[in-house]
């Protein structure tokens, strides 16, 4: 299976998940978007040594994934793109920062080790939260939320149209790649002699197709404005305010100390 084919499957999977029927699928996309952004900001704002504070934030994805019937493990697999950079940037932390912050049973934990683990954990948490958003929200609903946040219409329309043509384009790339590799079995990628013509041909076809789409849109009465179908969603006050309050509590560290105090 080539890369484009895998990507098509991945997008289709998310699309199917977003079509689900849980509580999270039915609440307002705007509240989900705002809660997600707030979650990301709160997690990002945690200091680099604040492992316990960051760890508390795991409550949100764990509980919401259970409600939305999603797999945390499936989502974690998507770390493959971003994990190398996070590791590359932080791998030397344990060597540069050797200040001992904690002793656990005679084993000294340096600041570098703690900050390394904390950053990786932050990476996992923000990934889970973003995935939760797209896996429970359909694309048109997400665009509706973006419009409610006053993101310019042209940008939202462009996003929606790009998403619409993405699957089509990737399927075409996938077919072309398959055909190419069948004729060049021992090759890993596109040979230098076909660098230009491979995507170039698709580009020419696509430009023609775009013009045709544009004409078709014009004939159907397109006047430079792409209308989104707006749907009414029930308000989700409990979800919205409940989680925002929880994030503040998590971030202040009161909750962690209180829970720790019970056990110590």
């Amino acid at each position: 299976m080539n890369k484009a084919e895998k990507a098509v499957i991945e997008i289709k999977q998310i699309d199917e998940l977003a079509d689900g029927n849980s509580y999270l699928h039915h609440i307002s996309p705007l509240s989900k978007l705002v809660v997600t952004l707030a979650y990301l900001l709160f997690v990002m704002s945690c200091p680099k040594y604040a492992f316990s504070t960051v760890l508390l934030f795991i409550l949100y994805p764990i509980s919401m994934y259970a409600i939305a019937d999603l797999s945390l493990w499936q989502a974690l697999k998507r770390m493959r793109f971003i994990l190398p950079l996070i590791i590359f940037v932080n791998i030397l932390n344990p060597f540069f920062d050797q200040q001992i912050l904690l002793q656990i049973g005679g084993f000294p934990l340096t600041g570098g080790i703690i900050s390394f683990i904390t950053t990786i954990l932050k990476g996992i948490l923000v990934l889970w939260a973003s995935y939760l958003l797209v896996a429970t929200t359909k694309m048109d609903a997400l665009c509706q939320a973006l419009r409610q946040l006053h993101i310019p219409k042209i940008l939202v329309s462009l996003f929606l149209l790009t998403y619409r043509y993405l699957g089509l384009m990737m399927e075409e790339v996938s077919r072309m790649s398959e055909a190419y590799y069948l004729r060049a079995p021992d090759q890993k990628g596109i040979h230098i002699s076909a660098w230009g013509s491979f995507l170039g041909q698709l580009l020419l076809r696509s430009m023609d197709r775009a013009t045709e789409i544009f004409h078709a849109m014009k004939l159907r009465g397109y006047i430079g404005e792409y209308r989104l179908m707006e749907k009414e969603y029930p308000p989700a006050y409990l979800y919205f305010f409940g989680w925002l309050c929880m994030f503040v509590l998590f971030r202040l560290g009161i909750l962690a100390e209180w829970i720790g105090g019970i056990f110590l």
């Binding site: 080539n2 890369k3 484009a4 990507a7 462009l158 149209l161 790009t162 619409r164 043509y165 993405l166 089509l168 384009m169 990737m170 075409e172 790339v173 996938s174 790649s177 090759q187 890993k188 990628g189 596109i190 040979h191 230098i192 660098w195 491979f198 995507l199 698709l202 580009l203 696509s206 430009m207 197709r209 775009a210 789409i213």
Partner: peptide
């Protein structure tokens, strides 16, 4: 939109 989709799909192609 079509060009954006093309660039996205183009990223999936490996050039040796």
């Amino acid at each position: 939109a079509v060009s954006a989709a093309l660039v996205f799909a183009g990223q999936m192609i490996n050039y040796t």
